[in-house]
Amino acid sequence: MTFFSKIIGTGSYLPPKAVSNHELAEQLAAKGIETSHDWIFSRSGIASRHYAEPGVKASDLGVEAAKRALEAAHMTASDIDMIILATSTPDFLGGFPSTACVVQNKLGILNGAAAMDVQAVCSGFMYAMAVADSMIKSGAHKNVLVIGAEVFSRILNFEDRTTCVLFGDGAGAVVMSRSEAPGVLATKLHADGSHQDILCVPGNVEQGVLAGSAYLHMDGQAVFKLAVTVLEKVANEALELAGLQASDIDWLIPHQANIRIMQSTAKKMRLPLEKLVVTVDQHGNTSAASIPLALDLAVRDGRVQPGHKVLLEGVGGGFTWGAAIVQM
């Protein structure tokens, strides 16, 4: 029998602390950094973002999103036999133990379920979904918890107004399960390491001491140009693999980085903007968490319905990008 993987539950979580552009501008002004709501919003479409409180880690956000996804799937944590967590801001230096293992422990999943992190920055959730899809279709796993969780506020330089205003913290999750009915119709992943310098955290640890910078660095113009090109291309590749046309898509849920990139992709694919799910205005760029956050919001407010075909896509540092087409 041929099996599919299907999303049967979604969940998300945002830290309670929301910071508007006006509030952030006031905080930056105290440091001598000039910015404004209009400057931020006109360039990105961002009006607000959420910041985790001190001591709150990516795993804490991921656990809350996972609990909500499990509840939506009518499952308990013990039903999960694999956790794949996408993050660029892991709980521990060096990324080990993996944040997925930390989440597993906090959820009380003591059945020996596999757990691992995936690092593809803002494309991380697409990579994690693709791995989960393959694991389920191969028969190796039955119920996979896929999480994107980030505390990007910890790696922002609040003296660089070109980057610190763009990012926020949050987590999103889905439960993907073995199904006889179609779910994930296609996935497509890419990377090009020759562009690694345009979006990175260029520091490393040598003999226990930080060498270089621990802050996010981004060449915004270069990222924008590359993103609008690769997102259209990978979306069309996924459509071809699924045997679909753009007109078959009910919803486009891209990585929530910049409203201009998102609208440009929709227009190039001749999708009406009414089919574009937008959360970047309230969440900012939450990296690997942005796609599952937006998906969960659209599911819970009733826009995304069972049977709808949804195109998910993301692009991030590395340089990485990917897309998936799922039937809900």
Rank of each mutant, 00 (worst) to 15 (best):
M1C: 11
F3E: 12
G11P: 01
S12V: 01
A18N: 12
E26P: 11
A29D: 15
S36E: 05
S36T: 07
I40A: 05
I40W: 06
S42C: 05
R49P: 02
E53A: 10
D60E: 11
D60W: 06
L61F: 03
E64K: 15
R68L: 08
A69E: 06
A72W: 00
M75A: 05
T76L: 06
M82L: 14
I83M: 01
T99W: 13
C101Y: 05
G108R: 14
A113S: 11
V118S: 03
A120F: 15
S123K: 06
M129P: 03
V131H: 11
D133C: 15
K137Q: 15
G139L: 03
H141M: 11
H141R: 14
I147L: 08
E150I: 10
V151W: 03
F152Q: 13
T163F: 09
C164S: 05
F167C: 09
G168V: 07
G170E: 08
A171L: 14
A171K: 15
V174R: 03
M176Y: 01
S177H: 10
R178W: 01
S179R: 03
E180C: 08
E180S: 09
G183S: 02
G183D: 00
S194T: 10
D197T: 08
L199S: 01
P202L: 07
Q207E: 15
L210T: 08
L216R: 14
V223P: 05
A227L: 09
A227W: 12
V228M: 04
V228C: 02
V230A: 05
E237P: 03
L241S: 08
A242Q: 00
S247W: 01
D248N: 06
D248M: 06
L252Y: 04
I253N: 00
P254F: 15
H255S: 01
M262F: 03
A266L: 05
K267F: 02
M269N: 08
K275D: 00
K275A: 00
V277N: 06
D281V: 12
T286A: 00
S287W: 04
S287H: 02
S287M: 04
A288V: 03
P292S: 04
A298N: 09
V299N: 10
D301S: 09
G302R: 13
G302D: 02
V310G: 01
L311K: 07
L311V: 13
G314T: 02
G316N: 14
A324Q: 08
V326R: 03
Q327N: 13
